[in-house]
Design a protein around this nucleic acid. Structure first.
Lengths: 246, 246
DNA sequence: GTCTCGCACATGTATCTACAAGTTGACGGC
DNA sequence: GCCGTCAACTTGTAGATACATGTGCGAGAC
């Protein structure tokens, strides 16, 4: 049970769509019906519907009832940050082999992304991530010192970093993902078990707090046969997706 | 000037952030200040702020003023569908060379994505897209017949398809983009001027109407040195971004 | 039989009010 | 000087109301 009424309504409607009680292509209940059902005024009902709209679950226009769309289910925020959570959500077993962990001055590009001065240092971590024991991704993550120190005394091969950071009260709030394709270099190829030069899906990610302070930078390279990224966007509620030139 | 007040407010605030009048890291004006400034009640003001939140432009929490975040500017919907519009937005000159246009039965995977029966046919289009005259992307698009027919009598090497479809009253409303990395095959390599086997960023896109009817399917392959895709997502307003397994 | 007008209903927009809950800073007790 | 409490301000949530605007269908004109 959620505290806020509009969250309760949104969750219940998401559940019905997932469960097929509201089939794809069928009209949603009208706002007034939802008001009666949840004993709510139009405010919370519209707030819930707006959330479903931005997630791409429903569509439609003025004068017509909203329509259930054939959308991929949006994943919770944590799933997009944590490889372990993601693996569990898709029903695979995550694994990891730490290659390197070090406290050092990051290279200039990373330092700039993390808003660090030239003499600040950070915690760099390189891990090979596995799905069901098979190599899936090479992760090169840099944490700002204040967060990174908490990681030096954990067993990184068994513990989920993000679970640990959440316990420590770190508020990861926003993440910016930049996707492109790169050729596997010698080290990528060796770790992932692919040929040197073969295509990898690269995700570069900057995670920040709710006030915009950078906390983590990561360069993750996926075998393209194990991971893709899907984004939904609509005319009205334009999501923050950007295609950028070189 | 927008018709709706909340859109006016949102646009004005976006402009101020873009222009640096509200610098990154600084607090936004309080809701009551915005109410006074725009002679509005809290409703439209909060609606505008919510839009900026989902775009990743601002962050913050209850009791605190919203904070301007260092976000990439979200691109309008049309920019994500139309190569020409995108090129113009980033200040480059778009170009195109049509390789093939044909009415035929699409292959089964595409037919399924477009919800077509086995005997329906569709309009297939292959184009090489250019930025400032240089090869940038190979586009393999399939339109459902009802839309595709309108394209057979236009000059595809000069006309923007999406401008033409918009004039014809086609309501492209939602797009689902799936991103991964592929090796250039012989044809990709020849058209794009890269070595066979070199990495390309592939975007597979399904565009639908506001009621969820599929209208267009596309397989676009970008030279990774000319295009990347950036997505922002937050803990609260989880956008419809998904990382999926193989 | 067909076309058109208008009504019922849907969502979109905006206002006012009220209270809950989190943050911040200032004041006063110790 | 330090700390705790409280007051003022902020955003979050929810209600009621009103009107604008777009859709679709049925009744009536022809």
């Amino acid at each position: 049970m959620d505290s806020a009424l509009h969250l309760t309504i949104a969750d219940e409607l998401r559940r019905r769509i997932r469960a097929g009680e509201l089939p794809v292509g069928s009209p949603m209940p009208s706002e007034s019906e939802l008001c009666r059902e949840f004993s709510a005024s139009r405010g919370p009902v519209r707030q819930a519907l707006a959330a479903l709209r931005t997630e791409g679950l429903i569509g439609g226009g003025q004068g017509r009832r909203a329509v259930v769309l054939d959308a991929v289910a949006a994943q919770p925020f944590a799933t997009l940050l944590s490889f372990s959570r993601w693996a569990e959500m898709i029903g695979r077993t995550p694994g990891q082999v730490t290659q390197e962990i070090a406290v050092r001055r990051p290279d200039p590009a990373v330092a700039a992304a993390l808003h660090l001065d030239a003499d600040d240092d950070a915690v760099a971590l390189v891990r090979l991530r596995l799905l069901d024991g098979e190599p899936a991704m090479v992760e090169r993550t840099t944490f700002v010192a204040s967060i990174g120190r908490a990681l030096l005394d954990v067993d990184l091969d068994t513990m989920s970093i993000y679970a640990h950071l959440a316990d420590a009260g770190v508020d990861l709030h926003t993440a910016r993902h930049t996707l492109d394709a790169v050729a596997a270099d010698a080290r990528d190829a060796e770790l992932l078990g692919v040929a040197e030069g073969s295509p990898l899906l690269r995700e570069r990610r900057l995670a920040t707090s709710s006030t915009g302070e950078p906390l983590e930078w990561s360069d993750d390279r996926y075998r393209p046969d194990v991971a893709t990224v899907t984004i939904t966007n609509t005319r009205r509620t334009h999501t923050a997706m950007v295609r950028s030139g070189a």
